[in-house]
Design a protein around this nucleic acid. Structure first.
Lengths: 337, 337
DNA sequence: CTGTTAGCGCTTTCAA
DNA sequence: TTGAAAGCGCTAACAG
């Protein structure tokens, strides 16, 4: 690994001159420049970005902290984030927290030490702790997908409350009266908002909200399976399940099937998050889709704008609409009367 | 952002003492230690990893270069890589090349400058250039998923040739005699190996290998669609399509459907890569699965072992077996006789 | 047009 | 048990 000094020595100039050649800055005599360039090639010189960053206090690196990159929703976001970042010369580190606040805190430590320029955060909880920590260290953050109500922070997310409201309305309109919700962790804003949207739809329709029909758990298949199993095991079985995300829905699907239920004849299932185009040959689930691509892109752009000092003056809260796609997993309930 | 010197000043000690406290190294008087610790907390001191790395020539960061993290096969790998790396205190940067050799080279430059400790590479081509470049700079590399025949480099991949052979055999055993292959880029070893496996199966069965039945393209849905369209448009239509990966298969599926063909009645489709468990409610494709998880884990472990200096002496080539899962997309051809 | 000095934040080495 | 000096690789600011 040759350094700028090695190059300087070989070219018979000072390190400063090499620096100028490398960065095309300031005046350098044509002949000198060529000598330096030859030395650079000869020595396979690659500038050390660490040294540069140490001076400039700029690493040209951002971090993306999310729960699980394996979830196609987050995969899509990650892809768009990386595209946007690399276009502007930034690298992206990614971290999977699995919704663990502790993991998140650990990652934050590492990232702070590594001096990342900014962070895109899908927070594991509504608590403002992580955001506060970053802000205390003057590291720009953009919160993605979720709300952190007690922090003044840029946020890019979809409108979960309204989405959930509409998804529930869809079921109500079909004639369902017994709808169970299978949500994610109670500490995550998307869970909360989706349950709230569900509540609002019921109340507005003048229907009772039965707390026993609401389950918080995790955004995973396994947990979705368990939650559905429980929800289906009650005396007056619900006629519809509202899954708070795609993984829960898949778990619920299998639970329903294993319980001998046909979908949608015996039970309807609706969910948030669609699978990317084409993954599924014959899309089945009625879903409330979120614009994952746009979220990733806009969040990254906002963060990069902040880093460039060109962002808007006020804290931004960008809330994108969701869209209902009715498919085969929902249908009117079969009246038992 | 307070520095070690700020802490030292506040605690009335030297920077060295602070360093010793932070890293629990060397002797520090209990009373002094406590004073320093208080100062650290008061100032919210976070050690600057850049400065440390500059001295140690170790960034505790690795890079994962792949074609497209959006492909579930690579998503799975990425997840396992990050898990393994973070367990050992390493961060992961990820880069999407979209199979572009130029993109790959650009990323390599950035990563070299950023002094990543090691690289996991899914190379965009069989050419040894990228590997050579990294090795010339003494950056350990592990090649993932693909071969780089002309380089001496650790590799973790699946046995594409044998997998393709078996997948083709599967079709031959069903009675197919007109099988078209839809492959990825001709510069990627997995494309080449899969076409070779196909060839071997045909030859071994004493069947002619018709070059017109072999198409190279890209590992994408769109391209899969186009390739299938062409393959189906010939006078003696094939009775089976062998897609070299999941995305191509999905494209091919739609092309076949759009051409009014039923699958598998009118045409069989088989492919490499399965979708992760549960993504698909009712798995349809006959696939040759690759152990993505194991690949990611083992590649990361191997790289980390190299970084720790504890790796095996020889260059490793780890080749994992593939597994055939016969499902609904393949069936015996309908004899037109 | 080119070079020198100093310092980014940290730690190794040696001395006290 | 603690500290001072020197240097990792780079560049801003100034001098020549």
């Amino acid at each position: 690994m040759s350094t700028i000094n090695d190059v300087a020595k070989r070219a018979g100039v000072s390190a400063m001159t090499v620096s100028r050649v490398v960065h095309h800055s300031g005046y350098v005599n044509q002949v000198t420049r060529e000598r330096v360039e030859r030395a650079i090639v000869d020595l396979r010189y690659v500038p050390n970005a660490l040294a540069r960053s140490l001076r400039f206090k700029q690493t040209k690196t951002i971090a993306l902290i999310l729960s699980d990159i394996t979830n196609p929703f987050f995969t899509t976001i990650a892809r768009c984030v990386e595209d946007t970042a690399s276009e502007q010369g930034f690298s992206v580190m990614f971290c999977n927290t699995d919704e663990s606040v502790d993991e998140e805190a650990d990652y934050l430590n590492v990232l702070l030490q590594k001096q990342v320029d900014g962070v895109l955060l899908v927070p594991a909880s509504i608590s403002p702790e992580s955001v506060n920590r970053l802000q205390a260290h003057s590291v720009p953050v953009v919160v993605l997908d979720r709300r952190v109500p007690d922090a003044q922070v840029d946020t890019v997310r979809c409108d979960s409350e309204t989405g959930a409201y509409q998804l529930t309305r869809h079921l109500l309109d079909l004639g369902h009266e017994q709808i169970a919700v299978l949500a994610g962790p109670e500490t995550v804003s998307t869970s909360i908002d989706r349950v709230n949207g569900y509540r609002r739809a019921l109340l507005e329709a003048g229907m009772p909200v039965d707390p026993a029909r609401i389950t918080f758990g995790k955004f995973t298949q396994t947990r979705g399976y368990e939650m559905a199993q429980k929800a289906l095991a009650v005396p007056s079985r619900p006629t519809a399940l509202f899954a708070a995300n795609n993984f829960i829905a898949i778990g619920a699907y299998h639970a329903a099937r294993d319980a001998g239920l046909r979908i949608p004849e015996d039970i309807s299932i609706v969910t948030f998050d669609d699978l990317p185009d084409g993954f599924v040959l014959d899309p089945f689930f009625t879903v409330m889709t979120q614009r994952a691509q746009e979220m990733g892109k806009r969040a990254a752009e906002l963060l990069l704008a902040r880093l460039a000092g060109s962002g808007p003056a006020e804290v931004q809260e960008i809330v994108l609409p969701c869209e209902l796609i009715a498919r085969k997993s929902s249908a009117p309930p079969v009246r038992s009367s």
